[in-house]
């Protein structure tokens, strides 16, 4: 009873956060200087009428919001308009229907563009996360187990070094390296590969994913190594490890049965919080490797000031991260019996 209430509260909280993001997302693009109407259509050759036409098309001719006294200093909204005919209402209504507006640049629905790209990012982040977690956990376990040895020192220092690497810089260096080693340098698949048998298609995607995934893995594994090390160090100095040792269990058994799960629990939360940061990494990696993901969409949209795409991508990323956090939170409480019954 108590537990399901806690879960409900967490879900409710996640939705509240999303609501906050939705509103922030709308006003960010309306309050900050720079007329979104002109941004996408900045070619000064356009005639006034054409610009007006575009404003109508993108719904920018409507008042931002209805009467909003509190925000009067920034001159938002007038009280005379129909609240249902404001940009904000239309934005919210469209969101509710899963519509994110139309790209200034490609004239396609933003939702279509992003949904094509979402999975590529999920693929990249997924592969990168899994690899960096696996490698980080392995190094972290070794570092903690062999604490204060050369192995430990090497792991810690190299983790700190890879943590300090700017993602895009590492990506550039690897692109440089890969370009001299015949690896594909851009995109997700070789054009025309869609006519190949499925297995070869996957192999093709795998080859394209290689450099971005390596970049991703290197950048994030250091952090996981450090977290795993310190978490495992904490666990291994707990009394129950001494108990396990006194029980005559071998080192391997102790690590496997008594230390790992306990040490991994904090990692779950860290991974979720990290998701927000890894999106930052994805933007940089996708920009360098022309990976057709969300990050690449952000990069391109920034370059073209394609605000509907930027807005949609930001919303999608934020919502994805919020959900990931929620799931991690719930997973954590599922995994840790101490939280479970509280």
């Amino acid at each position: 009873m108590n537990r399901s209430r806690a879960i409900l509260r967490k879900i409710g909280w996640a939705f509240f956060t999303i609501l906050f993001v939705v509103i922030l997302n709308f006003f960010l693009f309306r309050v900050l200087p720079g007329d979104p109407a002109r941004a996408g259509i900045r070619d000064p050759r356009l005639k006034k009428e054409a610009i007006e036409m575009l404003r109508v098309r993108f719904g920018l001719d409507k008042p931002v919001i209805n009467c909003f006294e509190a925000l009067n200093p920034i001159k938002l909204g007038s009280c005379a308009v129909n609240p249902l005919d404001t940009q904000f209402f239309i934005y919210v209504r469209n969101l509710a229907q899963g519509e994110l507006g139309v790209s200034y640049h490609t004239n396609r629905p933003v939702a279509d563009i992003l949904s094509e790209r979402l999975w590529n990012t999920v693929l990249l982040i997924g592969a990168g996360q899994i690899l960096s977690i696996i490698i980080g956990v392995i190094f972290g376990v070794f570092a903690a187990w062999k604490a204060r040895t050369a192995i430990d020192f090497t792991s810690v220092v190299s983790s700190l070094i890879v943590w300090s690497l700017p993602t895009f810089w590492l990506a550039i260096i690897l692109l440089f390296w890969g370009s001299n080693n015949g690896l594909p340098l851009a995109g997700k698949a070789t054009p025309g590969a869609s006519s190949l048998p499925l297995l070869q298609q996957w192999a093709d995607i795998g080859r394209h994913m290689l450099l971005p995934t390596i970049t991703y893995t290197i950048v994030y594994m250091g952090e996981y190594t450090l977290i795993m090390r310190s978490s495992l160090m904490d666990v291994l100095s707990e009394d129950y490890i001494l108990t396990a040792k006194a029980k005559g269990l071998s080192t391997f058994q102790i690590l496997k049965d008594h230390a790992l799960k306990n040490a991994m629990l904090p990692l779950v939360t860290v991974i979720a919080i990290n998701l927000g940061f890894t999106v930052a990494g994805a933007i940089q990696i996708e920009a360098v490797f022309s990976w057709p993901g969300l990050g690449g969409a952000v990069f391109e949209a920034v370059g073209r000031r394609d605000f509907p795409v930027l807005q949609g991508a930001f919303l999608l990323i934020a919502v994805a991260v919020i959900f990931a956090n929620l799931i991690a939170d719930l997973t954590y409480s599922y995994l840790d019996p101490r939280v479970q019954t509280e």
Binding site: F20, G276, F277, V279
Partner: peptide, 18 residues
């Protein structure tokens, strides 16, 4: 809330707008 919102994309948005 602010912790959950991915910061680089938000920075990108704000800097792009200003």
């Amino acid at each position: 809330i602010m912790l959950v919102i991915p910061d680089l994309p938000l920075m990108v948005v704000i800097v792009a707008l200003t």
